[in-house]
Design a protein around this nucleic acid. Structure first.
Length: 124
RNA sequence: AGAGGGGAACAAGCAGCCGCGCAAGCUCCGUCCAUGGAGUAGUGAGGAAAGUCCGGACAUCAUAGGGCAGGGUGCCGGGUAAUACCCGGGCGUCGUGAGGCGAUGGAAAGUGCAACAGAAAAUAUACCGCCCCAAAGGGGUAAGGGUGAAAAGGCGAGGUAAGAGCUCACCGCACAGACCGUAAGGGAUGUGGCAGUGCAAACCCCACCUGAUGCAAGGUCAAGUAGUCAGCCCUUAAGGGUUGCCCGCCCGUGGCUGAGGGUAGACCGCAAAGAGCUUUAUGGCAACAUAAAGCCAAGAUAGAUGGCUGCAUAAACAGAAUCCGGCUUAUGGUCCCCUCUGUUU
RNA sequence: CGGGGUGUAGCGCAGCCUGGUAGCGCGCUUCGUUCGGGACGAAGAAGUCGGGGGUUCGAAUCUCCCCACCCCGA
């Protein structure tokens, strides 16, 4: 996942946390907020108006474990990126239980939450 | 076979696909140039990256100066940029042993503390006891009892009213000390009838070291209203600053000139090369030093290493953020050397 | 990333500098008082002093190393 798509800044994070729609899964919470002000241009010209942020609490573990979880979530988001809709800010926040989930379990969990909240359209 | 001690290196790899950071070099595009953009060969976490416990490099300052205080270190010698680290040696202590551990100078410079118990706790003392004189009581004594962490050498013999280094042998202790060692220290031997406790990670004395703050240090750029801030010049009091105090120094007032602050951002510091690593040689017991040859591109800025498949199968602790040298703590299996016990030959 | 602080009874705090007995308030338990409760009075229980070494005869206290929590700095 390229850095253009990552959500940045303390303010934009707290904005999504407060105003966004919240949905809880097995090991993850997802916050979604509609945001039409996003305008990022990829140097390739492929414009995807979406921002994804990852928030991991210190309670989950030490830096090593937090990093592992962050990379897994990022990798999942990269795989799902092409199906995502425009004009959205998304935050994924894993719980400590997600550390014991496998990659595929985590992926199906996040995919389900994305589908429920309208980040991804229902498959036709 | 079991139990233990010391040390060393490693921290899985390979192939395929998807994906991320950087990109000296190369290719393409733009530009007068400086250089900018895109792509790409290549390259991309640790032994502890951790704790932040020490030591530096580097940077800044209302000058960091003098004196006292404060803080740190503390056997001796050596190593180092430096240290509380490392190497060698001494002593003490723990262990049957291999070995481990030690803030390990000074208690005859001074001050302080030693609760409770106990008769008495630091210029000692006399409760029970023992012995003598004896009416009460007085005197001698430090063997024995009991208290305590600690009570005026230990044991045996002589000696005595009972006792006592009172006397003697051995041991301990103190003092002197040939000789050995750079030193810490060791110590043949001699002398003394025995002084006298412990605590200095209590104050302290002695020796050596010590300015403070830390890359969110600090520097450059762009935007912009005011309370403001910075520079220069002049100078008085109150007051303030320096880790504390005194001296000293500086700020403070006014004028002139200029543009910063909150907040958000870009670049430098900072990324290729230094107290670097490897090998060999020389010196040294060693730590290490010197010389020669070869090798070395992590560099993010909400923060780059992940996912899937296969090889029968893949562990532990754990993730760089200015950079080095140590220490400490967490942790996986492997190898080497050594000690003790048991069994067999 | 850097700097600093705090851990003592169920809760909030003393004691630590200057080492020997862990104490205060609220709460808790029992009894009294009341028709019953509250308040009041009396008695009582409850603490590995965050964990582990070292110094010391003796450590909550001095010292070293860990653990947890909190605060500050652009």
């Amino acid at each position: 996942m390229k850095r253009v798509y990552s959500l940045k800044g303390k303010k934009s994070y707290s904005k999504v946390f407060v105003k966004g729609r919240k949905k809880k899964g097995k090991g993850v919470v997802v916050f979604v907020l509609k945001d039409n002000t996003i305008e990022e241009t990829d140097n390739q010209g492929n414009i995807k108006k979406i921002k994804v942020g990852i928030s991991i609490s210190k309670k989950i573990g030490k830096a090593n474990k937090r990093n592992l979880l962050k990379r897994r979530v990022r990798s999942i988001c990269h795989e799902l990126l092409n199906d995502m809709n425009d004009g959205l800010s998304v935050i994924v926040k894993p719980y400590p239980e997600s550390l014991y989930m496998s990659y595929s379990e985590l992926k199906s969990d996040i995919e389900g939450l994305f589908r429920y909240t309208g980040v991804i359209n229902e498959k036709s």
